[in-house]
Design a protein around this nucleic acid. Sequence first.
DNA 1: CGATCTTTGTGCACGCGTTCACAAAGACAT
DNA 2: ATGTCTTTGTGAACGCGTGCACAAAGATCG
Lengths: 256, 256
Amino acid sequence: MATGRTHRPATRSRGIPEATVARLPLYLRALTALSERSVPTVSSEELAAAAGVNSAKLRKDFSYLGSYGTRGVGYDVEYLVYQISRELGLTQDWPVVIVGIGNLGAALANYGGFASRGFRVAALIDADPEMAGKQVAGITVQHSDEMERIISDNGVSIGVITTPPGVAQQVCDRLVAAGVTSILNFAPTVLSVPDGVDVRKVDLSIELQILAFHEQRKAGEEAANALPDGAVPASVTRKESADKGPDGDVPAVMPA
Amino acid sequence: MATGRTHRPATRSRGIPEATVARLPLYLRALTALSERSVPTVSSEELAAAAGVNSAKLRKDFSYLGSYGTRGVGYDVEYLVYQISRELGLTQDWPVVIVGIGNLGAALANYGGFASRGFRVAALIDADPEMAGKQVAGITVQHSDEMERIISDNGVSIGVITTPPGVAQQVCDRLVAAGVTSILNFAPTVLSVPDGVDVRKVDLSIELQILAFHEQRKAGEEAANALPDGAVPASVTRKESADKGPDGDVPAVMPA
DNA sequence: CGATCTTTGTGCACGCGTTCACAAAGACAT
DNA sequence: ATGTCTTTGTGAACGCGTGCACAAAGATCG
């Protein structure tokens, strides 16, 4: 209960690396699965495999939380589940509002992963009067006029934006003004927020584009492997462009 | 960010740093917006602001692609749009299959951001016989028995998994066996794939948990300001606005 | 044509995150 | 107790990404 920092070297006291924080939920999920199978303890090697990471990395990550393992044995599953949950702040209830109840907003409202981790959908908000009153995932959608009141009444500090990009910034501003200090943004827009407000973005299109890049690279290497290695395929007469892969300039058609 | 990599590319991604690749879609979006406003050229400073990054970082990123700018002037918007599109492989058509047509799968099928960037939903696949034949986003859902044929017939190399976690690995295995080499995974599971297959994961629950951590930290610091405890006060300026960011694509899914 | 002004491209230093490798710590057997 | 065996926790090295600061390159003007 008291804050997590019981006794920690002052030198490194509060600083859990961001990269570590991002992996804690991963460990937590693996540990929860083990817990459900009533596994009492787990070694860093086993847990790392389950979480899909390197065991040394996992041990170092845990070392930032404290010494919760037992040498020669491993980690106590239940204890670790609790410690990580507490560190992440999941031992408390986090009311969340979702703004923009379209396909994606509805999908999120129905997503079971939220409730199971201490997150509670406090309200669904949409600007369309037609949507207000409708039931989505068992929750009545409310009009955005109510936004400020809802946030205030429920002590909401986390907001999820699933609106069209054009209105995302305005929605963001209203959320922040009403007291929200953490935002999960699904709209493809750059949100600017004051200091002290955290924004995380999830962009479906960008993920696909990154995959496309690697996919193209793979195709390029494949083609290159069919050629005598070393020399650049002479068949490709490229202009000044550095020394790109063997992909030709395909269609030069870009929407203007 | 949501990234899941199983294995390191071993071979350098054509020399372009992974971090740079992840930002290219961001620049592309900003550039596309400028293009639509018929802006002819843009400086690294302006573009960086629009993309929500540091201008030095942007210039360094572009330097990996080649020298596409003009000193004293800036970058030619149209030319840069084309170069980045080509680098990302967006000048070609990428057929994509979505497996698991639940709330999230349907939301993705309706997502406009895909089509606008060279991605085409080639098929929607679901294991439920009840779903087969239904129309989602104007596309007829097909039964998973057809998976292999669909992938083969359409030359699909990118698959999106939006199934329940329990069947994600099996679906993944079938996709890979059928020829898919890039996977975007929305299921909260660690997928194991053979070398040469890229996996990126988007985990909604994890993003919220990371926000909860920072939220709790903020609340803790606030309370700590009244505490005599160790000296950890000034470190509040830590702000890691790593991703103030933006990224997004043009169209959204939401119904207006 | 030369001076000045703007903006790119990049060498360099720094800090974070990852990985290795091993000493320390505890369990367990004798 | 003592020795052996297992596994953690971490010091140290390394590599990647970031940001600074500036020289080089080109535009523009007189």
